[in-house]
Amino acid sequence: MNDAQFKDVTLNVDQAVILAYAEMTDDFNPIHVDPVFAATTPLGGVIAHGTMSLNLIWQSISATFGEDAIGGALLDVKFVRPVRIGDTVRAGGSAVPAADGRHAVWVKNQDGVEVISGTLDLQGCAKEGGKVSRKG
């Protein structure tokens, strides 16, 4: 792993995964679970829950730094594009140069287009020797 890069986490999105996440969150909005209804909306079809992809960012952060090092971590993201059935989404991030504890985070689809974009601030976390420790 490049020291500046987070460990990537990837999820293949299909209707079964979306339905499983709907059950997990109790969010059965028809835009997520009803292809017939979703086709009539401006989005033109089913889209995945935004937070289903957001989970991948936390998993990437946890895999990169270790969960004991990120108490106080502040994540701020925008849901910028929909994720659709058949997409493969990948979460990751990288340090922002000359910004101690600040990182860019993202989720991208199979075309490399960002679907979630944001920042992670680890300045509020417990530090070791002045730097946030990185796992692995």
Binding site: V9, L11, T25, D26, D27, L54, W58, I61, S62, E67
Partner: peptide, 25 residues
């Protein structure tokens, strides 16, 4: 675990990211 099989928490704890669906619920 079925959806995110790679997400292995510290024993005795829940995966960190599970706070997201808890918030949504």
């Amino acid at each position: 675990r079925k959806m995110y099989p790679w997400d292995q928490p510290v024993p005795g704890r829940l995966p960190i990211a599970i706070c997201v669906p808890l918030m949504m619920r």
